[in-house]
């Protein structure tokens, strides 16, 4: 899903840069208030893991391939979409500058698609799916809601890329959405599986590193009692 240089006119790239930098400003602010000695190594190792798995394209039907993005996974682990934004922005920067994966001029657009859309859709979709009203109706369990949220996040990120291509005059809107959406519906299954495996493993091995297990977030996540109104809201 990395948009290379030349796919979007430069003046539009500049607009995407401004939007991406605005989100990065708030992501830095979140990091300043929430990253500490305990979770900084986790963020670094997740970034390294995402870099590695992004390089491994898995084959999908109709002659294409795809890779995981991981924004929803980071957002869910840290219980903040800003965590996903900053983590993916760092990975995308290294990929663009050192490996030519994603353009330098299109970096802003890539941060918006994979970092911002991936994290915000993944995180808030997960919040909605685990909510007793919606989650209760769909009867989704803890890990199903994680997987479905990750799947929808990559699908909508791909749709956003298709819209940017249309605005840039590169793809027609309808067919662009059809192809990009269609391919990423399949890639999203891989995203969902890996996200669930990582969250499940962390929950089993180091539950203290999952932000939903922290004291201030625990009540909010408790599916049996539903979301609690508390004075100390989870930091987002």
């Amino acid at each position: 899903m990395h948009i290379p240089d030349g796919f979007i006119p430069l003046w539009q790239c500049a607009i995407y840069y401004v939007i991406a930098l605005t989100f990065l400003f708030f992501a830095f602010r979140w990091s300043r208030n929430n990253l500490n000695e305990k979770n900084i190594p986790l963020m670094a190792v997740l970034a390294a893991g995402i870099f590695a798995i992004m390089s491994m394209n898995i084959p999908i039907p109709f002659g294409s391939s795809g890779h995981m993005v991981g924004a929803a996974m980071v957002a869910i682990i840290f219980m903040s979409p800003w965590a996903g934004v900053i983590c993916i922005a760092m990975v995308l920067m290294v990929q663009a500058l050192f490996f030519g994966d994603g353009g330098v001029t299109t970096y802003g657009a890539n941060v918006i698609n994979m970092g911002v859309i991936g994290s915000f859709v993944g995180f808030y979709m997960w919040q909605a799916l685990k909510h007793p009203r919606l989650g209760g109706l769909l009867n989704l369990g803890k890990y199903w809601s994680v997987g479905v949220a990750a799947w929808i996040a990559i699908f909508l990120a791909a749709c956003m890329a298709a819209v940017e291509m249309w605005l840039g005059g590169t793809f027609p809107l309808g067919l662009g959405l059809l192809y990009m959406g269609g391919y990423h519906v399949m890639i999203g299954i891989f995203e969902a599986i890996i996200t669930v495996i990582v969250v499940f493993t962390l929950h089993r091995v180091r539950p203290d590193l999952l932000a939903w297990n922290s004291k201030k977030n625990k009540d909010d996540f408790d599916l049996s009692t539903g979301p609690q109104e508390s004075e100390e809201a989870p930091s987002k």
Partner: peptide, 10 residues
């Protein structure tokens, strides 16, 4: 896979 990714295939 050496196939083009979703964006490349599109």
């Amino acid at each position: 896979s050496t196939n083009p990714d979703g964006l490349g295939a599109t």
